[in-house]
């Protein structure tokens, strides 16, 4: 994967998938006001695609990508509960989103 492709992956998926996840309060119930934006981050990125869809479009065929794919698959499985504002589901989705973001950022740095 080229430097540009890795940068694009980190930008299009990593940066946006963690937009709410990184800033949500660490404790207490997940704020209802953040749920619509969390839903956007996970299931309707800029361009309208789910994070997992955009990931599949851009990710290279590498072993290192498999855990990220698994994380995004888990996020997809949580969709109904996240949309409903389920606290546990939102928290879990945020944890997985942050994992994806950190891994893609590290990957893009390695590709430089």
């Amino acid at each position: 994967m080229t430097r540009d492709e890795a940068t694009r992956l980190a930008h299009d998926v990593g940066k946006y998938v963690a937009r709410i996840a990184r800033n949500a309060p660490a404790e207490g119930p997940f704020p209802a006001a953040l749920v619509p934006m969390l839903v956007k981050d996970l299931y309707a990125l800029p361009g309208g695609k789910r994070a997992s869809e955009r990931f599949v479009e851009l990710a290279p065929d590498e072993v290192a990508m498999a855990p990220l794919h698994a994380a995004l698959t888990e996020i997809d499985a949580l969709e109904e509960r996240v949309r409903a504002g389920d606290d546990e589901a939102c928290r879990r989705a945020c944890v997985r989103a942050l994992e994806v973001e950190a891994a893609l950022r590290a990957y893009a740095r390695e590709a430089r």
Binding site: D61, V63, A66
Partner: peptide, 18 residues
């Protein structure tokens, strides 16, 4: 190297990591 990584190490090995 890319073929080995894609066809074997990713699809058959990496995929079963979890």
């Amino acid at each position: 190297v890319s073929s080995l990584r894609h066809e074997l190490l990713k699809h058959r090995i990496g995929a079963v990591g979890s």
